[in-house]
Design a protein around this nucleic acid. Structure first.
Length: 542
RNA sequence: GGUGCUAUCGUCUAGUGGCCUAGGACAACGGCCUCUCACGCCGUAAACCCCGGUUCGAGUCCGGGUAGCACUACCA
């Protein structure tokens, strides 16, 4: 009978969740969902010295934001930021599983697969300094202070005297260990190169990753371990541990994912790369309470979760066809571990931007308006403080109006905050005029043209000002504005040239030679504001 | 140093021995659209790490180099 698919994402709460970790979580999630299995979340906090407050909450919130759902283990209570533990295999924090690990360490000790070692960190350090490439293994273990070299009485009295000790795994010599990897195939390593790994630490009375991981995966009935490639070298040790416990027949399948690499140069992607190259490497902004640093996040940078998901999914995996845009459901359907690449993927931030642009276009103007409001508010406040004679439109609180403005401009931005650069002139009248635009588009006759235009526009009624009709010809839809019918014949009869007049007009309204179609601008600005801006321009442009 | 993994356009990648004069996407460049800037559309340029071997035939299989990466803690 096929085993139920159960996978886990098991981060350490040592800081913000790295984007590579997010991808690992995503692949686990996709795999679980595709097979109708369970996605577990377990916190691996066996290093008490590296614990960062808030990291656990951060991890759960990040996964929640991205829509990576958790079936079992630790997760956010729906719609809240409260953490809940669900499932019958708990506790799901390793720091709360001490007694369980004690029991299994004892089992290994009793069966002779592990031994007690009294060597202090200082002694080991000295050894390593003296002997290059020193390794605690079959060749050296008999020269060290451990239960293999000491009598049972000695060991007992040392322990009774309060000596600190660790438990080490006794690796068998010269054995070819086979690891079957779903992505890389068969990997064989000889046990001679493995060292007698510490399984239980004296420092904080907690197991190391290796022991805790194997015990928990076994007890939690994990069927597939999907994790980063950095774990591949220790996979043989894990196989040996399963064997020592006698759990080899229920050992999970392994899949080691390629690493995310720096966009430039060599090496794996790090937090510093983000700072250096100006992009986030974390899903959410993180305030590290331990060292006081703040790291930027995708969410705060204006990324849509679906864009981050799509972008990440395609970094190291490809679908069955040429499809690039994937919803989460489509990913679940199409995902397959055998289409995960073997080699590391350089982090291509530009493509991430493109994905966000695509997904931004898919969102409704109203949704985008909602997201844009805080940005707008902040910018307006900044401007208010800076200068008192700025013209600020009433519409800064008018959501339908903002949605309309966004509809005109969203196709030119990658991120929500960039909307401000494209729309600011709708909210604030220009106080200065772009020199380059002026040089190219403001002609000698422009003041004359603008004066005539003002007179012409004065004759248009408030109602006609906003009037337009859709013209359909040859599958393309064109909007014919009432103002077209007023202005174009005038330009033609005077032979001024459409471009000459319209560009000058545009500079008056926008302050530069950019922006949406001009009648869309006049429509939103309204008759009064439009005319006011042209008059102001006539006074201010010299 | 040791061990392991990896190797196709600048980047992410397709490619499972003949469909490959190597396909797609991002970025770049050019054109079209146009009152501007964008978007969009169309197009151009751009790659099989090297050397051997197997085979009628190799990007694809094998061996060896080379390079990159990871690991080599009482971190995970």
């Amino acid at each position: 009978m096929e085993r139920r698919v159960r996978v886990r994402f098991a981060p350490s709460p040592t800081g913000a969740l790295h984007i590579g970790g997010v991808r690992t979580a995503l692949y686990n999630y996709l795999f679980a969902r595709q097979h109708g299995g369970d996605m577990l979340l377990r916190i691996e906090d066996t290093d008490s010295t590296r614990f960062v407050p808030g990291a656990e909450e951060y991890i759960l919130e990040a996964l929640d934001w991205l829509g990576i759902g958790i079936d079992e283990g630790l997760r956010l209570k729906k719609g809240t930021k409260d953490i809940e533990a669900v499932g019958s295999h708990g506790p799901y924090r390793q720091s709360e599983r001490r007694e369980i690990y004690h029991q299994y360490v004892k089992q290994l000790l009793d069966s002779g697969h592990a031994y007690i070692a009294f060597d202090t960190p200082e002694e080991l350090e000295a050894k390593r300094a003296k002997i290059p490439n020193f390794q605690y293994d079959a060749r050296t273990r008999l020269q060290m202070r451990n239960s293999l070299t000491m009598s049972a009485d000695e060991v007992a009295s040392c322990i009774n005297a309060g000596s600190k000790y660790v438990v080490r795994f006794k690796v068998e010599t010269n054995e070819d260990v086979h690891v079957h990897d779903l992505i890389r195939g068969e990997v064989v390593i000889n046990s001679n190169i493995l060292d007698d790994k510490v399984l239980y630490k004296s420092a904080d009375d907690l197991p190391t990753y290796h022991l805790a991981n194997i015990v928990d995966d076994h007890l939690m009935e994990i069927s597939h371990v999907i994790r980063g490639e950095e774990w591949l070298p220790s996979a043989p040790l894990h196989v040996l541990l399963y064997r020592a416990f006698g759990w080899e027949d229920t050992m999970p399948e392994f899949a080691h994912l390629p690493l995310l690499l720096k966009p430039d140069g060599n090496g794996k992607l790090s937090k510093r790369d983000g700072d250096r190259l100006g992009f986030p490497v974390f899903p959410l902004e993180f305030h590290n309470q331990k060292d006081g640093t703040v790291s930027s996040g995708y969410r705060e940078s204006g990324y849509l979760p679906e864009a981050v998901i799509n972008f990440l999914a395609l970094l190291g995996w490809h679908g069955s066809g040429d499809q690039e845009m994937y919803t989460m459901d489509e990913l679940i359907k199409d995902f397959s571990l055998d289409r995960v690449s073997k080699s590391g993927a350089k982090f291509d931030y530009e493509k991430g931007k493109w994905f966000n642009h695509q997904y931004l276009q898919l969102r409704s103007n109203e949704e985008l308006a909602e997201m844009f409001m805080p940005v707008l508010e902040e910018k307006m406040n900044e401007l208010k403080n800076e200068s008192s004679n700025l013209q600020i439109l009433k519409s800064s609180n008018d959501k339908p109006m903002i949605a309309k403005i966004i509809g005109l401009t969203k196709d030119r931005v990658n991120f929500v905050p960039e909307l401000w650069d494209q729309t600011n002139f709708f909210f604030v009248a220009p106080t200065e005029y772009d020199e380059k635009s002026l040089k190219k588009r403001w002609k000698e006759d422009s003041p004359k043209h603008m004066s005539e235009l003002i007179a012409l526009l004065e004759t248009v009624s408030e109602e006609d000002w906003h009037k337009n009709e859709q013209m359909v010809n040859d599958q393309t839809v064109n909007t014919l504005w009432h103002l077209d019918k007023v202005v174009m014949p005038w330009i033609e009869s005077k032979e001024y040239g459409v471009g000459i007049v319209m560009n000058a007009f545009r500079i008056c309204l926008v302050g530069a030679a950019r922006g949406p179609h001009i009648w869309n601008i006049t429509d939103i600005l309204g008759k009064d504001e439009t005319l006011r801006r042209v008059k102001a321009a006539l006074e201010n442009i010299h």
